[in-house]
Amino acid sequence: MSLLLSLQGALGQGILWGFMALGVFVTFRLLDFADLTVDGSFATGGAVCAIALTNGVDPIISLLVATLAGFIAGLVTGLLHTKCKIPAILAGILTQIGLYSINLRIMGRSNIPLLRIETLFKGLANQTNLSLNMVVIIIGVIFAVIVIALLYWFFGTELGSAIRATGNNEQMVRSLGVNTNFTKVLALMISNGLVAFSGAIIAQQQGSADVRMGTGAIVIGLASIVIGEVIFGKKGGFAVKLLAIMLGSIVYRFVIVIVLQLGLNTDDLKLLTAIIVAVALTIPVIMNKRKQLSMYKKLTGKEIEDHA
């Protein structure tokens, strides 16, 4: 029973963290840009949302304000990369490190509890008599539908197509008259906006914002993406891809719950996450190699028989 309850909690967590994974997907897969801003902008989302809530701002508006803060974080990384020509990874790290101090400034301390504040989740739970876990799932699903629909629409537009093409072949996009600096900055803003949104909604769900809440977020995002791709395949349309990442994020949480139930120390979680990502990225490579080898054996063996 307690495992079931934990899994229910993990489902909600998976959806809420899934927004962050979708943000990472925009840069990592669509733009082909390894953006390490994420760890910082996730906490920024939480920090801004917490401050907004404690100042009496509506929970939904707080989410939007946090998303705006994420846009700005992405803008900074984007400008560092495009205007100052700083390599992608370093640009992301610089923003991430800078954001740590900024997040502390925003919150004024390292942790803000939201126990007495009416968050989105507590609000609905009080009104409907549903368990908090259920409320998280319901609200999570509603936002997931909205976010995935928005992403699906946006990346089908002229502007979204230009961003996807930038990740594919920058030279070609420029030679078709599109400013690739602009598309890159825009993609980074969208990505970090989603990440900050995720941080904000997580802060509301767990009832606190912490300056360290984003540590390792990028790896969790990557884990969700690769799990989604390995399990649900790389094929299928864009909507399927987005859904697969959301599901990847949920599966990741399930795995965590199960290994914790099996007695894994929580201190070892980050190591486990890193291993999951490394393994999931390695599997396709090994599979390809094996496929190639077995095909070689099959075809070459046939040839030898034919000649015999």
């Binding site: 946006f154 002229e158 197509s161 230009a162 996009v173 078709l176």
Partner: peptide, 30 residues
């Protein structure tokens, strides 16, 4: 390899070329 986007459809590539010199908007890509 330099003139086209490999991961995108033939149609999507053409549609991007069709919009040369135009502002990219939030209208549908194709």
């Amino acid at each position: 390899m330099l003139g086209t986007a490999a991961e995108m459809q033939i149609m999507e590539n053409l549609a991007m070329a069709k919009r040369r010199g135009k502002r990219r908007t939030l209208k549908w890509g194709v």
